[in-house]
Design a binder for these strands. Structure first.
Length: 269
DNA sequence: ATACCATGAACAG
DNA sequence: TGTTCCTGGTATC
């Protein structure tokens, strides 16, 4: 699930539920237990999203770091007495004040740690600009791509180039700009690179709003008004059999160790 | 019941 | 470049 839009949506939703409140923290599964103890009962000041990373700013001055990876998942319970947790809950956050009771469980993350703000800064320093953040510098990403001999399909997945884009968005961004995933970054027109950034901003924002990835223009679909777009219709090329626009069979190519879907008709080498 | 694959990324070498 | 870690949905038997 988690590309950048998911992470920003989680930061927003969970922040609304927990920010400014004292929170009981524990780790039923155990691997976060020692860290949990240090912030147990502290006030959660803010949840920050940066690319695919989440940062929990605690009133103790420490910062929690969560990266969901491929499998990590949150579950929200609107009670402070949730059912016995099934499976391995790495981190559990539970309200203890008089407000609306909330318990949030985290399972299967790639990273779940606690440290000083320096550690958060070090992680952010390794990341490229995040299209969902107001402080993003598009030129940092555009220049990196424009100077690179590497395939643009790999660069778009490289979090140090652009933070928050994942395998679905990369395929869709390249399709919409008619660029083959294996084209070297330096062989792309600068205008196209700028446009890719702008499209990324639009797509990711739409993803946060809808809480899912929908990259197609609704008007290109033959759907009854008001009907929800099915998952397999929500993209132009990603996990499709045929290109939504021309019907050409979709091909795949491995770029950066991940399957990249593209339309051979629209995306020439 | 079992296998495999997936929207991710760190690490070894 | 290949291996490893984590979970869950779907396919296959």
């Amino acid at each position: 699930m988690p590309e950048g839009h998911t992470i920003h949506r989680i930061a927003r939703d969970h922040g609304r539920l927990l920010a400014g409140r004292p929170v009981a923290v524990d780790s039923p599964q155990g691997r976060f237990a020692a860290d949990a103890e240090r912030i147990d009962g502290a006030v959660l000041d803010e949840i920050e999203a940066y690319g695919k990373h989440l940062f929990y700013w605690w009133s103790t001055g420490e910062v929690g770091h969560v990266h969901l990876g491929l499998f990590g998942k949150y579950r929200v319970h609107r009670t402070d007495e949730p059912p016995l947790p099934k499976g391995a809950v790495r981190m559990r956050l539970r309200t203890t004040d008089d407000g609306d009771p909330v318990t949030i469980e985290l399972r299967g993350p790639t990273a779940c740690t606690l440290g000083p703000p320096d550690e958060r800064d070090a992680i952010v320093a390794r990341l490229g600009p995040d299209p969902l953040r107001a402080d993003a510098d598009p030129d940092a990403a555009i220049d990196r791509i424009a100077r690179s001999r590497a395939a643009i399909g790999g660069l778009l997945l490289d979090q140090s180039v652009i933070a928050g884009v994942g395998n679905v968005y990369r395929a869709e961004l390249l399709f919409l700009h008619g660029i083959h995933p294996e084209r070297p970054g330096r062989d792309c027109r600068p205008d196209d690179l700028r446009s890719i950034w702008e499209t990324a901003v639009t797509m990711l924002r739409a993803g946060v709003k809808a809480n899912r990835i929908v990259t197609v223009d609704r008007n290109e679909l033959d759907l009854p008004k008001g009907k929800r777009i099915p998952r397999r219709e929500a993209t132009y090329v990603y996990q499709r059999d045929r290109c939504l626009r021309c019907g050409t069979p979709i091909r795949t190519v491995e770029v950066a160790n991940r399957t990249c879907y593209y339309c051979p008709e629209h995306q020439a080498r």
